[in-house]
């Protein structure tokens, strides 16, 4: 670990937050600047809580796990989507601008309704294992075998935390509200890979074979470049596009 020999004077951070409370008829979107002293190992989670606790108790934001696992705290940090909880202020300039993730319904200040969007996406794309005979599995008997490599490949795609960064980073999603985005397309590839899911490519085509699905993607690659979990989104979408193009044409 780096030992800092000379202790430098802490920076004074200027955090500009795009604020708006839709439940307050008198509120309109505006930027508000808060100044606070940077602490060692300070994350935006710590900084925002300090602002709320000592400066403005009405400030709204979402954190849950504060460990980069749950995907609650996606926001726009200096123009780019990212997870606030694991963003260290020392990696940012003194002036930090925070805004809510666009493309989602605003709840207030930095809090947006990603949950509603994601649930809608899940319902629309039916993101669960489909088995004709749901109760076929006999839980008293040995589980179905699966190749270890395949299980790991599925997990690789399962790592998505539905934080919404790919949607916020996507020019297509910004223009088309019905676009399911990388998060949705990735889930389709995840279930397509899973032998427990009995759906055929034609079934998947009926879910994503249009402009709101895989053919809507314009390969702007914001998803790939801003995914906090470094999921192989571009490769997955390309793969899905090939499969769906072959299925459709």
């Amino acid at each position: 670990m780096n030992q800092i020999a000379v202790k430098e004077a802490p920076r004074s951070l200027k955090i500009r937050i795009l604020r708006h409370n839709p439940h307050d008829p008198g509120s309109s979107p505006h930027l508000q600047t808060f100044e606070l002293e940077e602490a060692e190992s300070m994350t935006l989670f710590i900084a925002l809580n300090e602002i709320r606790q000592t400066m403005d108790p009405s400030l709204q934001f979402d954190f849950v796990c504060r460990a980069g696992i749950c995907g609650s705290c996606g926001m726009i940090i200096n123009g780019r989507p990212g997870l606030a909880c694991r963003t260290l202020t020392r990696n940012l300039p003194e002036c930090i601008t925070l805004a809510p993730l666009p493309a989602f319904e605003l709840i207030g200040d930095l809090s947006v309704n990603t949950g509603k969007w994601m649930r809608g996406m899940s319902e629309h794309l039916e993101t669960w294992v489909h088995q004709r005979d749901q109760d076929k599995a006999d839980i008293d008997r040995l589980e179905e075998r699966m190749e270890p490599d395949l299980a790991e490949k599925i997990y690789e795609l399962e790592r998505c935390i539905e934080c919404g960064c790919c949607i916020a980073a996507c020019g297509t999603a910004r223009m088309r509200e019905d676009f399911v985005g990388a998060v949705g397309l990735n889930q389709i590839t995840r279930f397509r890979l899973d032998p427990r899911d009995e759906r055929s490519d034609a079934d998947f085509y009926s879910l994503v074979g249009d402009e709101s699905g895989v053919f809507g993607c314009m390969t702007l690659l914001g998803c790939e470049d801003y995914c906090p979990k470094d999921l192989p989104l571009a490769a997955q979408i390309a793969f899905l596009r090939r499969r769906m193009a072959a299925t459709g044409s």
Binding site: I139, P148, A151
Partner: peptide, 19 residues
């Protein structure tokens, strides 16, 4: 517990497997 895990396996959890 073994029933619980097997149910989840059938539902789609990609449990790591014995190689």
């Amino acid at each position: 517990a073994p029933k619980g895990i097997r149910e989840l396996a059938a539902w789609g959890v990609p449990w790591n497997r014995v190689q």
